[in-house]
């Protein structure tokens, strides 16, 4: 789920930070640059883990700030395909489920990765919202968002930044996880509590 990534970056440290020790100033700038941002193919940056080296400190002509080349490590949130993660339900509509980890919301479970057979029950009070139901052994199992949902990572994609945004489009998500709950042990955790005996038979 979390990985370290070693990165080299060259950036300017504004003179307003001159009063700080160099490590602190560089760390502050790195946090400002990378924290809570997605780097394509590396994932979502959670934290600056450590700083390996700081080099340079050149002041380029007509620039009133020092430029440093820094090697550092970041903690990245980057799930691998096949990983099982516990998340909370955020949205449920006819196209599937949307789950959230609190710090990351772009997790989608499309209809074909829901357990089979699943049915969608629209909510009459709310437009295009509703609940999904899995029918197993003649009994309906509802995905109601009360307990945590375990899903398996099916795919992680980093869509390119759109040049022109169509009107009324969803906000752009730089990293999208597609998940599956169509397997034993996946889905709301309450489904599998005490399921042992029935499974064995």
């Amino acid at each position: 789920m979390f990985y370290l990534s070693r990165i080299e970056h060259t950036f300017r440290v504004p003179p307003s930070l001159l009063s700080l020790p160099i490590e602190e100033a560089v760390k502050g700038e790195l946090e400002r640059l990378f924290l809570d941002k997605v780097i394509a193919n590396l994932g979502l940056c959670v934290s600056v883990y450590d700083i390996k080296s700081i080099e340079g400190g050149f002041i380029f002509p007509s620039d009133g700030a020092a430029t440093y080349t820094v090697v550092f490590r970041l903690i990245m949130f980057r799930p691998f395909v096949g990983e099982v993660i516990a998340a909370k339900l955020k949205e449920s509509n006819a196209t599937g489920l949307r789950l959230s980890l609190g710090f990351f919301d772009d997790i989608y479970i499309p209809v074909h990765l829901l357990p089979n057979p699943s049915r969608f029950k629209p909510d009459p009070n709310k437009r295009d919202k509703g609940m999904w139901e899995w029918e197993y052994g003649g009994e309906p199992y509802v995905i109601d968002g009360i307990d945590e949902i375990k899903f398996q990572v099916h795919n992680v994609s980093y869509p390119p930044i759109p040049i022109e945004k169509p009107k009324e489009a969803k906000p752009f998500a730089p990293m999208v996880i597609t998940g599956s709950i169509n397997d034993d042990g996946l889905g709301p955790i309450s489904w599998w509590v005490g399921a042992e005996q029935t499974d064995e038979s």
Partner: peptide, 14 residues
């Protein structure tokens, strides 16, 4: 920005 090592080790949640 240059990525020197995309995977410099995995971390557990802990």
């Amino acid at each position: 920005m240059k990525s020197l090592e995309a995977n410099a080790g995995a971390l557990t949640n802990f």
